[in-house]
């Protein structure tokens, strides 16, 4: 049996599976601290179980046993897709990956036709990434499966924010009261939006740092402060979260050059000195080395949490998948 043994569970904080009031996980906006913390607690438990247990399956439960998770990715992705796949498999689920290249989507099939086609095969959970904001929500309105938003346009990427929070929590111990600077291409970043919601909800002080051309309208109304100077914006910050310059979503007039961007907004050692003494560096990846972050910072084993983020991605997604799988049973 794949039940968690009591002994093991006691060593990892024995957090129960998270339960969500919604059938889908479409965004962080609207989630309350209890729901977020339930997912983080469970993610923490999974992270411990994975790290401490060589016989992994034993401690992880089988919430997804007999269930099918469908990864439907309209944008290229390596880490997120693999992370979801691994998370689902560790919970005993079976996973199908559909990438758009070479599929019927390329033949002109609409998002909803694809969705209804897949729906007819009765997957339990649909993990969707799409380049249009709101696409995951649209799908959720037309399929029976629980939908997880794995990134929709510039809107949200909830599991990234959860894994970021889990990473911070495991390293620092808490999120409340931390000064967290999110730096870079805010305008085009779904990661930024999800993190603004999540970190703000958990009581962190969130600052945004970016050139004025990448600053979305009225973002200061989302409970954050804004700076257009990296050294000023990260001053005293506990966490410096760098974002990828999303050239694929940019019109070409946002910054003069990558060289200038790195000069003004790229994180290097001298600028990083402005942050708090024990400040940590994060990046959701994939990185543009030498554009938004200098390699010496990205690879600094003391300060960089970037690899931990990837590791926590699996644990955080396990918590999400499990919560939605159980939600389906109780509904």
């Amino acid at each position: 049996m794949n039940k968690p043994s009591n002994k093991r569970a006691a060593t990892a904080r024995n957090a129960p599976a998270a339960l969500l009031p919604t059938r889908h996980l479409l965004g962080i906006e609207g989630m309350n601290p209890l729901e977020i913390n339930a997912l983080l607690d469970r993610g923490d438990y999974f992270a411990n179980a994975i790290q401490k247990n060589s016989d992994q399956q034993a401690n992880l439960g089988d919430a997804l046993k007999g269930k099918t998770v469908l990864n439907l990715f309209y944008e290229n992705s390596t880490r997120t897709r693999v992370s979801f796949e691994l998370a689902a498999k560790r919970l005993g689920g079976s996973v199908l990956n559909i990438s758009v290249a070479g599929s019927s989507v390329k033949k002109g099939e609409t998002l909803l036709d694809t969705a209804t086609t897949l729906n007819a095969m009765h997957p339990h959970i649909l993990v969707v990434r799409h380049n249009c904001s709101g696409a995951a929500r649209l799908l959720s309105e037309h399929v029976d499966a629980a939908v997880i938003n794995a990134g929709d346009g510039r809107h949200e990427h909830p599991t990234q924010a959860l894994l970021d929070a889990l990473t911070i929590r495991r390293r620092v111990g808490h999120i409340e009261g931390l000064k967290i600077a999110i730096c870079g291409d805010i305008a085009n970043s779904r990661v930024a939006r999800s993190n603004i919601h999540l970190l703000g909800t958990l009581g962190a002080e969130v600052r945004l740092v970016c050139p004025s051309t990448l600053l979305p309208t009225a973002i200061d109304q989302m409970g954050v402060s804004v700076s257009t100077n990296l050294e000023e914006g990260i001053y005293g910050a506990d966490i410096v979260m760098m974002l990828r310059l999303q050239t694929e979503r940019m019109a070409g007039t946002e910054t003069p050059s990558q060289r200038e961007y790195f000069n003004l907004f790229g994180l290097d050692r001298s600028k990083f000195l402005r942050a708090a003494p024990n400040a940590l560096i994060m990046h959701p990846g994939p990185m543009n080395r030498g554009v938004e972050i200098d390699s010496t910072m990205a690879d600094d084993v003391e300060k960089s949490l970037i690899r931990t983020q990837v590791e926590m991605g699996v644990a955080a997604r396990m918590a999400c998948l499990e919560a939605l799988a159980l939600g389906g049973e109780t509904a």
Binding site: S133, G134, D152, R154, H155, R193, P216, T217, I219, M222
Partner: peptide
């Protein structure tokens, strides 16, 4: 060009491109 809705806090929140 490419704008999807009115440019405002709402467009920022929804991640839609704004038309000022």
């Amino acid at each position: 060009r490419d704008g999807e809705m009115n440019e405002s806090e709402t467009s920022t929140r929804l991640g839609l491109l704004g038309i000022p």
